[in-house]
Amino acid sequence: MNELKKYHEIPIGGTVITKDVVQPKTGGWRMGEKPMVNLDKCVNCLICWLDCPDTAVLAEGTDFFGFEYDYCKGCALCAEVCPTDAIVMVPDDQEVPEYGRMLNGGPHEN
């Protein structure tokens, strides 16, 4: 949460200077489920990346990377559009590897 500023401390006219902004996290919106990816099934098509309504699907350059849960609202659209069923929804409190990356049934490091 940004600290509330006084009237003379903010730019005039309602202007927001883009570079000053750190967007709030929206991961708290999730209602019980979060996505996880089995990289052995992922074909790196990026459809989940494009269809994510927030920015929870991370790409590294032009390759699929994993999930940024701070910006995942839990809609499961990524799992729905995944052509290889690589993405599955798991309970939000389930422990998952960083960025939800699984390989050969276990966490995928790096």
């Binding site: 990026l46 920015t55 790409a59 032009t62 910006y71 609202k73 839990g74 809609c75």
Partner: peptide, 23 residues
């Protein structure tokens, strides 16, 4: 889609953290 991803990697024009609905 890779071209789109390449463009977004170059400049992320629309960022997350907005309050558009889930789905």
């Amino acid at each position: 889609i890779k071209q789109l991803a390449a463009n977004e990697a170059k400049e992320k024009r629309f960022r997350g953290g907005h309050s558009l609905c889930s789905g």
